[in-house]
Lab assay of single mutants.
Amino acid sequence: MSIQHFRVALIPFFAAFCLPVFAHPETLVKVKDAEDQLGARVGYIELDLNSGKILESFRPEERFPMMSTFKVLLCGAVLSRVDAGQEQLGRRIHYSQNDLVEYSPVTEKHLTDGMTVRELCSAAITMSDNTAANLLLTTIGGPKELTAFLHNMGDHVTRLDRWEPELNEAIPNDERDTTMPAAMATTLRKLLTGELLTLASRQQLIDWMEADKVAGPLLRSALPAGWFIADKSGAGERGSRGIIAALGPDGKPSRIVVIYTTGSQATMDERNRQIAEIGASLIKHW
């Protein structure tokens, strides 16, 4: 067993022997301040990774656009098919120029040779490549099948209805392509620590998230040296922004954090800054 596999296998073990965790309302004060600064709703939840206990939450059962955070769930569904012998990570998928959609920095470079399922998941999570996500959605049967996968996990809230990039439209009061912070946090925890996926697939999923290259201005910008984070960000229309993450000190994750916002007129930089400040408060009061 590799060191990384050992780390993920012992996530519940280490967490069980940690000192009790206590909620700190100071972080919620910052979440509410972010709402004021952005002029928009902000949803927040913080779960203990081992027990699933909610440590703090704000608007945990209000719907927010998922945006690209759905790509972690998508690759979880792909990995479940791999575990069941219905898919192979090494299978190569070929596609054409007509398949390319807006923001496809990886797939646009491989029109000639195609990409493997493993490479597509890596591109979808680490670079948020939209064509990679659409190609992977095709392998599982489309958005409705991802929703069905989530329902089978016990998540009857999260739903995907459309493809990239239309799913980022974020129309107010439109339930399409949305989740709730509580539902997303619980589902992410199941994917990373539950028995739904094999140990190898859980490790692969967290490795992809740990290698995320496009979430630097968010929670990662607030992390002290030595902290662990595996995350996936999302951005959408109407001032929408979000991030889902597993993080913790001492090089291992111990909490799940989900943050979503929508309806702001603020710039992307300002949305990023507010999420980073929430992260800084979380870490300060850990």
Rank of each mutant, 00 (worst) to 15 (best):
H24C: 09
P25N: 05
E26T: 15
E26V: 08
T27V: 01
T27P: 03
T27Q: 04
T27E: 03
D33T: 04
D33K: 01
A34S: 08
A34R: 00
E35P: 13
D36L: 05
D36Y: 14
Q37T: 14
Q37E: 05
L38Y: 01
G39I: 10
R41A: 08
I45E: 00
D48W: 03
L49M: 05
S51P: 01
S51L: 01
S51M: 02
G52N: 15
E56K: 13
F58Q: 00
E62K: 00
R63D: 04
R63W: 14
R63M: 14
M67K: 12
M67P: 01
T69S: 07
T69G: 05
F70M: 01
V72Q: 02
L73M: 05
L74F: 05
G76C: 02
A77S: 00
A77T: 00
A77R: 00
V78P: 03
V78S: 13
L79E: 15
L79Q: 15
S80E: 09
S80G: 07
R81A: 04
R81I: 02
V82I: 11
A84R: 04
G85V: 14
G85H: 15
Q86E: 04
Q88D: 05
G90K: 11
G90R: 04
G90Q: 08
R91K: 10
I93N: 02
H94P: 05
H94L: 13
H94S: 09
Y95N: 02
S96G: 00
S96N: 00
N98A: 00
N98T: 01
N98G: 02
N98D: 00
V101M: 11
E102T: 08
P105G: 11
P105V: 13
V106G: 14
K109N: 06
L111T: 10
L111M: 00
T112C: 14
T112D: 01
G114M: 03
M115I: 15
M115H: 12
M115V: 10
T116S: 11
T116E: 08
R118E: 04
I125C: 00
S128A: 13
D129N: 02
L135F: 14
L135P: 04
L136M: 10
L137W: 15
T139E: 07
I140L: 13
G141Q: 01
G141S: 03
P143W: 10
K144S: 10
E145R: 09
T147M: 04
A148Y: 15
F149K: 12
F149Y: 06
L150H: 15
L150C: 12
N152M: 15
N152K: 09
H156K: 13
V157M: 13
T158N: 06
T158I: 02
R159C: 02
R159E: 01
L160S: 07
D161K: 02
D161W: 05
W163C: 12
E164Y: 02
E164W: 01
P165Q: 10
E169F: 13
E169P: 08
A170C: 13
I171W: 06
I171G: 03
P172H: 13
N173E: 10
E175R: 10
R176M: 15
R176S: 04
D177V: 10
D177W: 14
D177F: 13
M180T: 12
A183S: 06
M184Y: 03
M184L: 04
M184W: 05
T186W: 08
T186V: 11
L188V: 09
L188P: 13
L188H: 04
L191C: 14
L191T: 07
L191E: 05
T193D: 04
T193L: 07
L197S: 07
T198L: 11
A200D: 15
Q204S: 02
L205A: 02
I206L: 10
D207V: 08
M209H: 09
E210A: 13
E210N: 08
A211E: 08
A215H: 11
A215I: 11
A215N: 03
P217C: 10
L218N: 11
L219S: 10
R220F: 03
S221F: 13
S221L: 06
A222W: 13
A222C: 10
A222V: 06
A225W: 15
G226C: 07
G226H: 13
W227S: 07
W227H: 03
F228V: 02
I229N: 08
A230Y: 14
D231K: 05
K232G: 13
S233F: 09
A235F: 03
A235T: 04
A235M: 01
G236E: 08
R238T: 07
R238A: 04
S240K: 08
S240R: 03
G242N: 01
I243Y: 13
I244T: 09
A245T: 11
A245R: 03
G248I: 09
P249C: 12
P249A: 10
P253W: 10
P253H: 12
R255N: 10
V257D: 05
I259R: 04
Y260F: 02
Y260G: 08
T261M: 04
G263H: 13
S264Q: 04
S264F: 10
Q265H: 09
T267V: 13
M268L: 03
E270D: 14
E270I: 06
N272L: 01
R273Q: 11
R273C: 06
Q274C: 14
I275P: 14
A276V: 11
E277C: 14
E277G: 08
G279M: 07
S281E: 12
I283R: 11
I283M: 08
